[in-house]
């Protein structure tokens, strides 16, 4: 590549030429907070792309990875190319992470129609990492037919994924708790589809009856419930059919409204600024120090922190590129 091309132009050209190494590299740089503006200006937003983005969420151990792995095989038989973006939690103490999703992903390493990438949540709490939205754009620009996104898999209100996917599959198991768990607000309301996995366990039919009863009493459109046994490959074809149905007609769950999406963006921006200033800004250091002494209510300190962060330059000019915007 010529020296005059910016790092991003070079990567973007390679990505359009389907160079997987370039995609892998770009994803890393996005995770590190680099080239974000370039991707946002050059890679088209999801609504203009043909990629079907499917989210898989649910408790740890429910079978998200195994179902995802099963869907890879199913999609490749249909000659659909697929990217898998799987997030595992980072330690809030050390920043380290053990990313174990590949253990369950069994696909032919020579098959260039599959791209799998593991993500550490890197301290984000929505079940995905902060960079996921931008990574998704880069992956879509590469031209995959399907993107399967997996959440960290903990918790009931980690719905960051809802804003990013066309179809959200909630993976439950018959042993996932009594129906009071299902009455709780959050993921049950956000799902387009339920995969009741491990459907060879006792209690499966009871669980399905319980789920149906809940949705009968609810004003929302009941999601289809598909029985799956991921480890035996059972129910995958039916699950995919239902996913495509939702993908074709559009989710009954509109994305969160503009107010909430803007707030999420502001939260991301706040975190980015804080991490930038944390170790170098004396005012921030002083606020942290005063908070550490513990004698004061933290909210005024937090307001002072916001004031200080909004005073500093919001975007580092050296990483902003206004070429083709």
């Amino acid at each position: 590549m010529s020296e005059s091309a910016s790092p991003f132009e070079e990567l973007h050209a390679r990505i359009k030429a389907k160079d997987r190494r370039a995609l892998a590299r770009l994803v890393s740089r996005l995770e590190n907070g680099e080239l974000v503006d370039e991707v946002r200006s050059l890679c088209p937003p999801h609504d203009s792309m043909r990629t079907l983005v499917v989210g898989m969420t649910g408790s740890p151990g429910a079978g998200k990875s195994s179902l995802t792995a099963g869907l890879i095989g199913h999609l490749r038989q249909q000659k659909k190319t697929v990217a898998i973006l799987a997030t595992d939690p980072a330690s809030p103490f050390t920043g380290g992470a053990l990313l174990g999703e590949r253990v369950r992903m069994d696909y032919d390493p020579a098959d260039v129609g599959v791209f799998m990438r593991s993500f550490s949540s890197r301290g984000a709490t929505g079940g995905l990492s902060e960079s996921t939205a931008d990574v998704l754009r880069a992956v879509e620009a590469f031209g995959f037919d399907v993107v399967l996104m997996e959440t960290v898999g903990s918790g009931q209100d980690q719905l960051a994924i809802r804003d990013l996917v066309d179809v959200l599959v909630l993976v439950l198991t018959p042993a996932g708790g009594d129906d009071i768990q299902w009455e709780k607000a959050g993921q049950m309301e956000a799902a387009d589809l339920i995969a009741l996995n491990k459907a060879d366990l006792p209690g499966t039919d009871f669980a399905i009856a319980g789920l149906r009863a809940i949705f009968e009493l609810s004003p929302q459109v009941a999601p289809a419930i598909v029985k799956t046994i991921a480890t035996k490959g059972q129910g995958l074809a039916e699950l995919w059919r239902e996913i495509e149905l939702v993908g074709g007609r559009g989710s009954h769950h509109p994305r969160f409204g503009p107010a909430r999406r803007l707030l999420s963006a502001a939260q991301r921006e706040l975190r980015r600024l804080f991490e930038k200033e944390e170790s170098s800004n004396p005012v921030v250091a002083d606020l942290i120090e005063r908070f550490a002494r513990g004698s004061q209510d933290e909210h005024p300190l937090a307001r002072d922190l916001l004031k200080e962060l909004s005073r500093v330059e919001p975007v580092d000019p050296s990483t902003t590129h206004h070429g083709n915007g």
Partner: peptide, 18 residues
């Protein structure tokens, strides 16, 4: 390595070099 702040991608057993 995880506790040292690294991101460890563990592939599991019986992997082929490819």
């Amino acid at each position: 390595l995880r506790d040292a702040g690294m991101e460890v991608i563990y592939t599991g057993l019986w992997q082929t070099p490819e």
